[in-house]
Each structure stands twice: as C-alpha cells, then as structure tokens.
Amino acid sequence: MATVAGALKQTRLGISGRVGGWIFYGVPLVAFLVLILPRLFLNPGFFLQILVFGVTDGAVLALIALGYTMVYGIIELINFAHGDIFTLGGFIGVLIFSLIGIVPGKDLNLGFLTLFVVIGVMAVTMAINGGINVLIERVAYRPLRHQPRLAPLITAVGMSFILEGLMFIWKGPNFIQSPDLLPGGHFTVLAANVDYRSIVLIAAALVLVVLLTLFIERTKLGKAMRATAQDRDAAQLMGIDINRTISATFFIGAALAAAGGILYGFYLHNFRFDTGFITGLFAFTAAVLGGIGNIRGAALGALLIGLIRAFNDGYGRSEWSDVLIFAILVYVLVFRPTGLLGMQVPEK
C-alpha cells in the first residue's frame, strides 16, 4: 500500500509542475476535441442548443453552490441543510406569488411590470429565506462552533431532515407547481432556437454572482468575511464581530439559494420537498470541483456539471451522466486536491 501511496504522491508531484499542468488540462482538452467538437460541425444548431441548456442548468446550480462554498469557506462546515434551504426558498417564492394572485396557469399579462414584480418577490423571498438560515445557524451551529467538527456536521444533517419533514407536512409528497414569469419566445442562431427564458435566467444568475463578488471584495462586511475566513481569531482581535459576520454569510448564502429556487421554479416548473436534497448534493460537488471556499470556483464547477449533463443527455445516454460527472470529479481531486481554482479556507 505504501508504494501505491508513494507512487500516487509522485504522480501528483510530477503532474503539479508546468508539464503536469499541460497533462492535467491536456487530457480533458483532447477528450473534448475528439468527442465533442466534431459534433459542432455535424450540426452546429443542435450543438448550440445543448450548450444553452447546459449553461442555464449550470447557472441555477451555481446559485446553490455559492451558499455551500461561502459557509465552508468561513467556518469549514459542510452545510447539508443548504439544499433544503434552496427548496424552501422556492416554496416561499411560490407562496408569495400566490398571495399577490400569481398562480401557475393563470396569465396576468403584466407586461413590462413583470420584471419589477419578479424582482420585488425575489427580494422579499431572499430576505425571509436568509432570515431563516440565520436562525438555523444561531440555533444549530453556533453553540457547536468550538466542538469537534463532527457535531455541527451532524446537526446540519439533522436540520436537512427537519426542513424536508416540515416541507413535506406543509405541501405533501407531490410536486408543487411554480408560476413561470420568464418571457416566452426565442430567437434563432444557426438554426438553433435559443429561448429568451434561458438568456434571462443566465443573466439573472450572472448579475447575482457579480453583485456577490463586488460585495465580498469592495464592502466592509465583505472584507470582514474574508478576514474571518482567513483567520478567525486574528479577525476577532482586529475588532471584527465574528458572530455578525458568520450570520451575514448564512444570510447571503440562503438569499442566493432562494433566488436559485425561484429561477429553478420558473425554468423547470416543479419541485417538491426533497428536490433540494439531490440538487444540493450536486451543488456541493460543484463547489468542491471548483475549489471549496472559492466563489468563482463554485460558479465554474456548477457550469461544468450543467454542461456535462446536458451534452451527455443530448448526445449520449442519460444514465451515464452521473458516472461522467463523478469520474471528472475524481480526476480533478486526485490531481488537484484543492479543486480547479484552489481552495480558500481558514488557515490553521
């Protein structure tokens, strides 16, 4: 075993230099050039269409992955309840839409006003969902902050089941319908029909990610978050309110997940109490793939997962999608244990 481990270590070392970098990126690149690219020339329209689907799915996934990566980055907790926070956001969104008379199947035809209604509802939902997540952190994670790492991990699993159970009691076992306020219609490029809805969705996710990045890099609270992530004790010595900073992280993560939930509902129309469990696992995978704790990494990882699934469903057989996604995850982690863009976690 020792020799195997040694050999593996050597391989890693060998592959981490400049030549290693070439090999690391070269193998997937060759696979892409051989397997995928020829299809582009065979039928560019179809290729483009699949590309758009992949990016759209990746964009929604990214909004969830960001919450995982932020929380892990700051307190090294894999927040298993985050996937369910995403579902909860969608549920709350549907509730608020129905309160103002927007229910699935009924076209209110608000015209230009739709944009403001969506942004308004989204803001309210994000605030409520963020508040709930802050509460969860206060109740289930904060008291355990100085306990062994396993304790908050298990309470996170517990919170996940509690949330799923509550949503099950609230809405029952069936899929619930979400209204769809994305614009209809499409434009045609290279014989591919690109839906406006996909474009709007990708744009919305992009705007949120850019806003988040600006917030973390440019604001005082963002600076506090980075400082807390880097070294909690030092940050505290510098007068940063750690509790407030961590609460803010949970708030933002859940707010993004809520936006993701609403957009997911618009795009795919249905979810139920356990939708977030699986979706959350994939979002977590995306975060690890990109480099946990790394905002851009999470977005990149989510995009990759969306693309792999879309291309495999479009060109291959769907049951291979998970095999491919996780094979790539193993490949990346074996040779780049810190993920594609590198981890950003507290220093010990």
Partner: peptide, 22 residues
C-alpha cells in the same frame, strides 16, 4: 434519437427532447 433512461438526479429533459426532435 438517444434513448434516455434518466435517474432521479435529472431535472432538465430538454437536451434529450431536443435531440429526439432533431
């Protein structure tokens, strides 16, 4: 088109449907 035996992780069927349509 491609035969699609999807699993519970699949949420977006549009790639399959587009391939079938194509």
């Amino acid at each position: 088109g491609p035969r699609n035996d999807y699993d519970q992780n699949t949420t977006d069927f549009k790639p399959f449907l587009t391939a079938a349509k194509n």
